[in-house]
Simulated assay, not measured.
Amino acid sequence: MESLNFIALVKFKKKGDQKLIAQNLKQLEVEEKEGIRYQSISWTLGRYDAVVMFEAPDEKAAMKVAISRGDWADIETLVAVPAVEARKLVEYVMPESFPTGVGNRKGEGSFWATA
């Protein structure tokens, strides 16, 4: 089965210390053995403290990622559908949205073509 893509928007509840950082790094190793693949972890300015992009085998595995950090972070997890796959769904459900006389049906050069 293909992995699902997720985006986690993270707000820290408490200041990180060496113990918390070590605990999180150990958790990352455990999760990788369980099929979680981290694509990117970025600290951010603004509403969220970090944005994490990862793949998981299913929604339950993604929920476990968030729940395991619940004591030190508020995490909002989003399912991310690649633009190419979203375009296929829209084209299937609403074929009139992709008229053959206007541009390229594959959506090349448009928002829908981005990966």
Rank of each mutant, 00 (worst) to 15 (best):
M1V: 06
M1I: 04
E2S: 13
E2N: 10
E2T: 13
L4M: 14
L4E: 08
L4K: 09
L4C: 04
N5E: 15
F6C: 01
F6G: 00
I7T: 07
L9P: 04
V10E: 00
V10D: 00
F12P: 01
F12M: 07
K13C: 06
K13L: 13
K15Y: 11
G16D: 15
G16I: 03
D17V: 02
D17K: 07
Q18H: 13
Q18T: 08
Q18C: 02
L20Q: 02
L20A: 12
L20T: 07
I21Y: 12
A22R: 14
A22W: 06
Q23S: 13
L25G: 08
L25T: 04
L25Y: 14
K26N: 11
K26Q: 11
Q27T: 07
Q27M: 15
K33D: 13
E34W: 04
E34K: 00
G35K: 14
R37V: 13
R37W: 14
R37C: 07
Y38A: 01
Q39S: 08
Q39C: 10
Q39W: 10
Q39L: 15
S40M: 12
I41R: 00
W43L: 15
T44W: 03
T44H: 01
T44Y: 04
L45R: 00
R47V: 04
D49W: 10
A50M: 07
V51T: 05
V52G: 02
F54M: 08
E55Y: 07
E55A: 05
A56G: 08
A56Q: 04
A56I: 02
P57T: 01
D58K: 11
E59W: 03
K60R: 11
A61L: 13
A62R: 03
A62C: 05
M63P: 10
M63T: 02
M63Q: 13
K64Y: 10
V65R: 01
I67D: 12
R69C: 09
R69M: 11
G70F: 14
D71T: 05
W72S: 07
A73L: 14
A73F: 08
D74Y: 14
D74W: 15
E76M: 08
L78E: 11
L78C: 13
L78D: 10
L78M: 14
A80Y: 07
A80K: 00
A80P: 05
V81K: 00
P82C: 12
P82Y: 06
A83E: 03
V84H: 05
V84W: 03
K88Q: 03
L89N: 07
L89W: 14
V90D: 15
V90N: 05
V90T: 01
E91R: 06
E91L: 06
Y92H: 05
Y92M: 12
Y92S: 08
V93N: 04
V93F: 14
M94N: 12
M94P: 00
P95E: 01
P95Q: 02
P95D: 01
E96M: 02
E96G: 01
E96P: 00
E96F: 02
S97M: 14
F98I: 00
F98Q: 02
F98E: 03
P99L: 06
T100L: 07
G101M: 10
V102W: 03
V102I: 03
R105Q: 07
R105T: 01
R105E: 06
K106F: 01
G107N: 09
G109E: 10
S110H: 09
F111R: 10
W112S: 11
W112I: 01
A113S: 14
T114W: 09
T114V: 10
A115E: 13
